[in-house]
Design a protein around this nucleic acid. Structure first.
Length: 309
RNA sequence: GCCGAGGUAGCUCAGUCGGUAGAGCAGGGGACUGAAAAUCCCCGUGUCGGCAGUUCAAUUCUGUCCCUCGGCA
């Protein structure tokens, strides 16, 4: 039996992934599944550029705007939900993953080490230590048990060192040991379609998009979100634009400064995305204006794998 | 016009008791296995405003000119 085909549309923020996915929906019975770690938040539909209600009416859209700002969707949680949505799609439906969170997609396509959930008590204790003692302290401890991982992280990287340490404390096995375990291959056949825009062409578009978001009520959206979740450290508030707008609402920075920081951080993020995707060698890249070609390419691939949608 | 404070990296500024200079931000490159729009790493030659003087040596001291910002007229 052949594997079920799943199309992925990826690229930097603002490149036009949504438009491409809708182009695809015009040609095939598509079920769009989000793989963007920010578009999952219900409090920030505008700021995280979620597809509009009109766009979502075109075909089924999954995993958008369902999570409260106080919660995180981690990579494992994402994989579980995405697989569930793929399974829930009718046989005649084509699952199309759309998003920009490289790690989510990688976790889904290549699998994640089968590390059990870490008890909250251990998690919180180590995070607190990372905060108070700093990354190098955790790194020094890791060196004793998992020197292999130390060669792949950096003393200053608090977040990753804390993760490696919590896994060791909770399971008694090193992070590296878990990483080296066999992961069963994915039951799906993925086709990765990339929307390629170079940073210099993208920047003015990103700035324009920020203006549009502000026109569409981004400031109000942030105010409302603050009423629902008044915790600046909540996962939802760490998104780009969210925390700049929060500072503006508090009167710390004026609108020009807000716009400037928002634009700067968005651009830096787009660059990180491009760096991530650059190393994935199995992506088929298309310019944003080549929607048609991308759709055609997908059609050909579906025919090749005998898909009868 | 006079008095004062300045002119150093794309920007904001530090510094050199005389031996041609370095931070933050911006920018560039990279990493990435449960917070990933996160977290982190690497990359700094620039007539040190112009000209002249003193000196073995001036971005640094002196003179002068230009420009900016205050204050007084």
């Amino acid at each position: 039996m052949t594997k079920r085909p799943v199309v992925c549309i990826l690229g930097p923020t603002g490149a036009g992934k949504t438009a491409t996915s809708l182009g695809m929906a015009a040609k095939f019975p598509v079920r769009v599944i989000n793989f963007d770690s920010r578009q999952v938040y219900s409090d920030f539909p505008v700021i995280t550029a979620q597809p509009s209600p009109e766009e979502r009416a075109v075909c089924p859209h999954e995993l958008y705007g369902f999570l409260p700002s106080s919660e995180v969707l981690n990579a494992a949680g994402f994989v579980a939900m995405a697989e569930e949505r793929i399974e829930a799609a009718a046989a005649a439906e084509l699952p199309v993953l759309v998003g920009g969170t490289g790690m989510y997609l990688q976790s889904l396509t290549s699998g994640l080490a089968p590390i059990p959930d870490i008890p909250d008590e251990i998690r919180e204790r180590i995070r607190k230590r990372a905060e108070e003692e700093g990354g190098p302290a955790l790194y020094a401890e890791l060196e004793k048990v998992d020197p292999d991982y130390c060669s792949r992280t950096h003393p200053n990287n608090r977040q990753r060192n804390a993760r490696a340490l919590e896994v060791y404390e909770a399971t008694g096995k090193t992070f590296t040991w878990w990483h080296n375990r066999e992961v069963p291959p994915s039951p799906y056949d993925f086709l990765k379609i990339g929307i390629m825009v170079d940073l210099d062409s993208l920047t003015p578009l990103l700035n324009l998009r920020i203006d549009k978001m502000i026109e569409a009520g981004a400031v109000e959206e942030a105010r409302r979100a603050w009423e629902i979740c008044p915790d600046e450290n909540a996962p939802g508030w760490t998104g780009i634009g969210c925390n700049e707008l929060l500072r503006h609402i508090r009167g710390e920075i004026d609108m020009d400064e807000t716009r400037r920081l928002w634009a700067r951080n968005t651009r830096a993020y787009a660059k990180r995305q491009l760096t991530w995707f650059k190393r994935e060698k199995d992506i088929h890249w298309f310019a944003p204006e080549d929607h048609e070609k991308a759709v055609e390419f997908v059609g050909q691939w579906l025919a090749d794998c005998g898909w009868a949608g």
